[in-house]
Design a binder for these strands. Structure first.
Lengths: 221, 221
DNA sequence: CGCCACGCGGAACTCAGTACCGCCGGACGC
DNA sequence: GCGTCCGGCGGTACTGAGTTCCGCGTGGCG
């Protein structure tokens, strides 16, 4: 029944447009009563994102497991759960992306969904950073950065019609965030030679030569 | 007329609740026709955020001025414009905050407003980081972090009934973001003999970040 | 004085979402 | 076998947001 409604809705949305399709059109095509539509989907927008509720539950369950991991790594792994849901049905995800991009109402609804993920991540980080100075601030900022990085990679994957390697793109994006928010434990001198590299170069040195030196010293990014 | 509608709307929203107030109630209290309400506000939600449209225009105008500044500093300053708008009318802002917090529809609408600010910041950063490796990703992440930090400080100020020093709180929050995304490579000794530059960098720093620092230090050769 | 533009009000309409009721088929006890 | 309860489903009517169309007054202008 749910699936039949989703299928009927997407057929009409794609061939006629979202706002030009009424709930009555959907239920008559699916052959069910109008009342049943709102039994399964609290609003017309919900039929476009039928699996986010389950994904959000999965994420909160994942964040509730043992918190031995490093907090930032944990929320990055949690964000990857969302990508997996999108990657399960690439064709469906791409269609939905195109639909969402051109309908303002759906964009607004997607924002509310994304914010629920972000709130879940921020809530986890707040509990992990509780007590620290600016813990809540740090939690909110990191959650927002993780979500932004994830969405950046996800959208560029969706724009390429799901052709590229979504997981690699998201991994790369999240790595950028991880390094930006890495614990900055060591000042340059006391950190010891393991953490810090010092490069002395003459002004006027060709850039490529310094870069080659850097690649070797820093471990190739 | 606009102001009369906003005043009437907030009187009813506060004494009766948002969803319990219809547009007809507002226009009869304001003594105008129903049609005129939708002339000034495209939706019922817009009357709750009457000044965001102007603020968004101010922000884009500010970002369009000469880009000599450092990009992250520039978007932080742009975010401060939003705070100034809130700080102009503390009482009104606090009332609106309480109203928004308890009405899901208004929270969703606020998300769409915030995302427009975030998109403005991200668009500016994308143009500044164009050409760099992962420029768009870096732009999106920094924009999200700046918005999250701003909102964190703003909301804690609103929760304190507008009693604290809002600007100081936002400055502190944005400083945290600035240092997190500050170029991690520090020219430790730029003086000495004029033809030598020393760069100290953490292992794991993204290569492009160091390279950009090098370009500046070595004279962009 | 006539004309036009424009801001405003009002009536009627569409559609999302809700409340209420009536129907039917299957489970259960007697 | 039969009455009864129950839960999923459909239909009807309603509220309220947002839109469209039209008609009215007023103020500026030739």
């Amino acid at each position: 029944m749910r699936d039949a409604l989703v299928a009927a809705a997407f057929r009409l949305f794609l061939e006629r447009g979202y706002e030009e399709t009424t709930v009555d059109d959907i239920v008559t095509l699916a052959g069910v009563g109008r009342r049943s539509f709102f039994r399964y989907f609290p609003s017309k927008e919900d039929v476009v994102f039928p699996d986010h509720e389950r994904c959000l539950a999965d994420m909160t369950a994942f964040l509730a497991t043992d918190p031995d991991d490093e907090p930032v790594r944990k929320v990055c792994d949690a964000a990857r759960l969302v990508l997996l849901m999108y990657a399960e049905n690439p064709a469906f995800s791409v269609q939905r992306y195109r639909l969402t991009r051109r309908v303002p109402g759906l964009r607004a609804y997607e924002l509310s969904v994304v914010s629920r993920y972000e709130r879940a991540l921020a809530g986890y980080l707040r509990s992990r950073y509780a007590g620290g100075r600016d813990g809540a601030l740090r939690a909110d900022v990191i959650a927002a950065a993780v979500v932004a990085a994830h969405n950046n990679a996800l959208r560029s994957w969706l724009r390429s019609d799901g052709k590229g390697d979504a997981e690699a793109m998201v991994d790369h994006a999240l790595d950028q965030v991880r390094t930006a928010f890495a614990e900055r434990s060591v000042p340059a001198v006391t950190g010891g030679p393991q953490d810090v590299v010092v490069i002395v170069s003459r002004r006027g040195t060709p850039l490529w030569r310094v870069v080659r030196e850097l690649e070797a010293a820093l471990g190739r990014d």
